[in-house]
Design a protein around this nucleic acid. Sequence first.
DNA 1: AATGTGTCCAACCGCAGGGGC
DNA 2: GGCCCCTGCGGTTGGACACAT
Length: 300
Amino acid sequence: MMMAREVSSEEEAGGGDELRRGPWTVEEDLLLVNYIAAHGEGRWNALARCAGLKRTGKSCRLRWLNYLRPDVRRGNMTAEEQLLILELHGRWGNRWSKIAQHLPGRTDNEIKNYWRTRVQKHAKHLNCDVNSQQFKDLMRYLWMPRLLERIHRSSQSQSHDADDADLSVSAATSCITSDLVVDAHHPPLAMADSNDSAAMWQQHQAPQMSVAGAPPPTTTMAQHVVLPTAAASCHQMQDQFVCARAAETTTCCWSESESLPGLAGLYYDDAAAALPEFDVETMAMWGPEDDPWYTQMLGL
DNA sequence: AATGTGTCCAACCGCAGGGGC
DNA sequence: GGCCCCTGCGGTTGGACACAT
């Protein structure tokens, strides 16, 4: 029913001529960019008409937001961005536009494509349903700590003279927005079972990081909690929150004698001992060695 | 070199919701 | 309240490209 109306308005936008579809030409891009530079964006149907584009308003909007906008970031997702996507998808599901708001320069379309092509592909390879608890646990307890280690190693290699706290405060900084902190009252994925939000918030402040591949935690979580030593800047708060969040996925949940939740038969010792080396150069979430490793660990 | 297969991503489609009249 | 239009979101598709055989 809506489509009939929509089509009529789109036909109007096309001025009665045949509407173009498919890939945009350089000339069309120029028309759109120049028009928006002169008149601003919005009112897309009228914009398409006035700019002389034989495109629907929808098509113009999509082209601008996903491709032509000057602040669109292109290229591979960084480890920090991948970590954020996993984290935020765990919290919000397929709310791509909401997730995109936390990754400056990345579009919902790009994040959606990333999820479908990379994450779902690996779920398929592992014979997991991407929505299954098993796969969620895999992300939470294995992939996210691994990504964190990549970030950690990368920042170490970039700033040798930084102290430990600074290292924990990773380059993820640039990707985190204040919304994430505001949203921190939601029970985070990795500790959704907790009832004590105050204690959890204290844990959020803990910049201490223990990642997969590092010596396994031998103390309780309480012993890992380190209260902030100085008034933290907004950025530091955000960084600590994120790093502590991700660190929890390692420190809270793995003990030497306890199997990983949802991953029956997979023990911390096994995981830590068998972790393959990261390919820090490529910063890809999965290296070629990862699939067989996960397959073996999961007994798939 | 030719062909087949898989991957990635830009673009499209269908729908829902909001606002103006 | 109902209609119309616009905008935005999430799902899907198709073509270009890369890689394997």
